[in-house]
Amino acid sequence: MSMTALDGIKPLTLRQYFICLWGIVWREGLRFLHQRERFISALVRPLVWLFIFAAGFRQVLGISIIPPYDTYILYEVYITPGLMAMIQLFNGMQSSLSMVYDREMGNMRTLLISPFPRWFLLSSKLFAGVFVSILQVYAYLLIAYFWEIEPPSLWGYATVLPALALCGLMLGALGMVLSSLIKQLENFAGVMNFVIFPMFFASSALYPLWRVKESSPWLYYVCALNPFTHAVELIRFAFYQKFDWISCAAVGAYTAVFLIAALIAYDPARGMLMRKSG
């Protein structure tokens, strides 16, 4: 009887990597379908902003012609990219919440004892979250379409997809970093106050940055550095089939930083998870 090391253990194949990735995305999709409240609230939140806030502020905030827009636009049109990014922001933070929950409940541990490399497992988890956030964004866009908010050409729906994927990745990676820092589930309210709201309001989601600059130069610089601003602008341009290389480079750089930080946080040797579970 042969019982020596590595007998019969073949290296994992590319197909097995694919099966693993598929399994993680599939589970995330199933969970999403089962949590109907989560889907509805993910949809209602931006719609409240669109139907109530934007309608109310339409007269207050005049928007001049700024790229990528060629004409005067309605305020609803202006804030739609911001709301698309907001869906992804909430989704990213929600998946970080679910990772804290998973860690407390142990589901995270069943993921981490998989024999695939940890970077692959975490990236797959991230990818699954991005997939769900993109579904939510398109559901929002479908409703917005009937409100006559649409890109200049239907192609806009396609060109915005890579922008959404990149922004989703950035916000998901940020959520993953936060999930390693949050000690307990209850601290999620803090994430709302200290992450979601400041990121959303100190960005170009609701008002163009030149308006911010007029009233407060230092706030302008905060907004200009805010990763969320770049996510909004990348989506805004892509929706109009245009490419804003500055925001793309910024989102790409922030994504890389957050991803590396997340991988370090979950690296067994560095042991960020240690204090929480010991």
């Binding site: 099966i19 399994g23 969970r31 409940m105 004892i113 024999p115």
Partner: peptide
């Protein structure tokens, strides 16, 4: 591994829980 805390995904069916785990191990 069977962890001390309950780690089945309560929202998923039994077979879905098993399939998810199998995928994490690269099983067809």
């Amino acid at each position: 591994v069977v962890f001390q805390s309950r780690t089945l995904d309560l929202e998923l069916s039994l077979i879905q829980n098993l399939l998810y785990h199998a995928a994490l191990h690269g099983i067809e």
